[in-house]
Amino acid sequence: MLPKREATPMAERSPATRRTLWLVLSLVFAFLYIPIAVLVALSFNEGGLPTAWSGFSLKWYASLTGNSEILSAALNTLIVALVSTAIATLLGTLLAIGIEMRRQYGKGLEALIFAPMIIPDIVLAIALLSFFSMLNITMGLHTIILAHVVFNLAFVCSVVRARLKSFDWSITEASADLGASALTTFRRVTLPVILPAVVAGALLAFTLSVDEFIIAFFAAGAGRASTTLPMQIYAMIRFGITPEINALASIVMAVSITALTLSQRLNRGVIGQ
C-alpha cells in the first residue's frame, strides 16, 4: 500500500494551474447553489414569481402556517421519520455489533445489507405495494414506517460498522473477565465508543426519511392521514406552482441541512456512506 499522502496543495502549483482549479471550483459551486439560492430568494419575494422582484415579504411563510394540508403533511412526515429512525437505529446498531463482534462477513449477508441502499426506489416501492395489497394490509402511515425502516436500517448499520472496525473487542472480553454482565459491558464499554456513530446514523436516517418520496408514495394509504410532506410537495408541483412552495422548500432544506451538519460534526465522513 502507498502511504496516505495528499495531492500537491494548490500553493505549490503554478499560478495558471491554481487559477484554473479555483475557476473549476467556483463554477461547480455556482451550478450547485444557484438553483437553491434562487428558490430561497423567491420565497421572500412579495410577488412570489420569478419574473420580478417586488419587495421583501414573509407572507408566503405566513400563509404556510395557515395551510392545514401542509401542516398535517408535515406532522405525518415527522411521525414517520421519528418512528422509523428509532426502530432503524436500534435494529441497525444491534446488527452492526452482531456482525462486527462475530466477524461474520458472509457474501449473502453483505448483499442483504447493501441491497436497500442500491435497489432502485421504484422497485422497492412496487414490491412493497404488491406485498401489502396481497396480504390485504390496509396501507397508511404504518406501512410507510415499515418501508422506511428497511433502508434506514441499512444506513445506520453501515455508519456504526465503520466505527466498530477500529474497535478493540478484547476490551469487552476484559470487562467480562472482570465479572461485568453483557448488558453492563455494552452500556459501559461498547456504547460510549459507538455512540457518536449511532447518533450520526440516526440523524442520517432521519434526513433520508424526511425527504423520501417514491416509496412513501406507493406505500401510503388513502388520503390526508398518510400524505407526507414530499408527497404534498409533488402534488403542489404537479398542480400548478404556488409561491408557497418556495417557502416550504426553504424550510425543508433548512431542516435537512441542519440534521446533516449535526450528523457530520458527530461523525466525520459520514456523508460518504
Binding site: 438553483p35 428558490l39 420569478p50 466525520r268
Partner: peptide, 26 residues
C-alpha cells in the same frame, strides 16, 4: 478540503423534489 467537500455534498441531502423543482423555476 473538508469544508469544500462538505459544501459540495450538502445539496445532495436536501429534498430531491425541491432540487428538481428549482430547475422548473430556472
Amino acid at each position: 478540503q473538508p469544508v469544500l467537500l462538505f459544501f459540495a455534498v450538502l445539496p445532495f441531502w436536501s429534498n430531491y423534489l425541491i432540487r428538481t423543482y428549482a430547475w422548473i423555476v430556472l
